[in-house]
């Protein structure tokens, strides 16, 4: 069992105690949370701070392609871009990871080599999660065996919404166990909530705690396949959760908003929120990621604008 769970073993011991715990968490007032998120969004980030923020944001990107039409060629190209996002500028940092379906992991891994860029794989019958546990675990093991450094699993939203919290919990625990490697170099587990389906911020807070107690390394908003995907208020509540969890257990858990973050300005708003809500310790690709595809080029264009003083255009950046 993951060490985090031991602190809460009395909580996660039964459906009833888990429910009591999750429903005993402080409520979230939606209007107040949205107002706070909006207020943080009005921070004005200029000059050196902005340059730093853009580079950090690039380093936090999980460059993602999760399409039925993905091919080995496509993901190889994406992996190349991940290592050198701006071929014209060697000072431009690499992204954090490339995020693909499990069957593409080996290809991406091969391309990335020892670049330091991770391979992340969505697993567990992504995006709906509607499959038997065995299949989800097999899906996970498959990706881990192919070399995935990180597994992005989806929770069973149906189980969560019908109040079967323990089932969700146990599934996360099982998937985390499936992330283990014989050598001990376990894949990191990101747990996707699909907050657009959970709807309320109270649910976001509860599911965040549930996942953290189950041993998630990261908690992640969305698959990108459901609207709304990541939003500032949802991310705010998740950042509060990881902050409070560290306060309670001493352990840090990462946060990954995914989907819908398209502009550099948006990305900077998220970083401001990370800074002021969870704290500067989370301003690190080890603890905060952006699940995105088009965001990267927007960040690059802004970065170029900062260095050249003029606005750039999409023709000057590669599509993948």
């Amino acid at each position: 069992m993951p060490t985090t769970a031991t602190d809460y073993s009395d909580v996660t011991g039964s459906e009833a105690s888990l429910r009591r715990f999750l429903h005993g968490l402080p409520g979230v007032d939606q209007v107040g949370a949205e107002a706070r998120a909006a207020a943080l969004g009005t921070r004005s980030i200029k000059t050196t701070a902005k340059a730093q923020a853009l580079d950090l944001a690039i380093r936090m990107v999980d460059l993602t392609t999760l399409e039925g039409q993905d091919t080995h060629g496509k993901v190889r190209a994406l992996a190349s871009k991940a290592m050198r996002p701006d071929p014209a500028d060697p000072t431009c940092p690499a992204v954090a990871a490339v995020c693909v379906y499990p069957d593409m992991v080996a290809t991406v891994k091969q391309t990335l080599g020892s670049s330091g860029v991770n391979v992340a794989a969505v697993a567990t019958a992504f995006p709906s999660g509607r499959a038997a546990l065995d299949i989800k675990l097999a899906d996970t093991r498959d990706a881990v065996e192919a070399g995935a450094d990180e597994i992005d699993m989806v929770i069973d939203r149906g189980a969560f919404l019908s109040g079967h919290y323990l089932r969700v919990f146990e599934e996360i625990v099982a998937v985390r166990e499936a992330c283990a490697r014989p050598g001990g170099d376990d894949a990191h587990l990101k747990v996707i909530f699909e907050t657009g389906e959970l709807q309320t911020l109270d649910n976001v807070r509860r599911v965040s705690w549930l996942a953290m107690m189950a041993g998630a390394h990261f908690i992640k908003t969305s698959t990108g396949k459901v609207q709304p995907a990541a939003t500032l208020p949802v991310t705010l509540v998740m950042l509060e959760a990881v902050r409070d969890f560290r306060e309670a257990t001493g352990q840090m858990v990462g946060v990954k908003p995914a989907g819908g973050i398209r502009t550099a300005k948006d990305a900077i708003k998220y970083l401001v929120m990370v800074n002021e809500v969870a704290g500067p310790d989370w301003l690190d690709p080890a603890w905060f990621r952006f699940g995105a595809s088009t965001l990267l080029n927007e960040l690059l264009m802004q970065r170029t604008k900062m260095t050249t003083g003029r606005y750039s255009g999409p023709d000057y950046f590669t599509l993948d």
Binding site: I45, A49, P280
Partner: peptide, 9 residues
């Protein structure tokens, strides 16, 4: 990372 906001007058 030290994310200090530069003045934005």
């Amino acid at each position: 990372m030290d994310f200090t906001y530069a003045p934005a007058p």
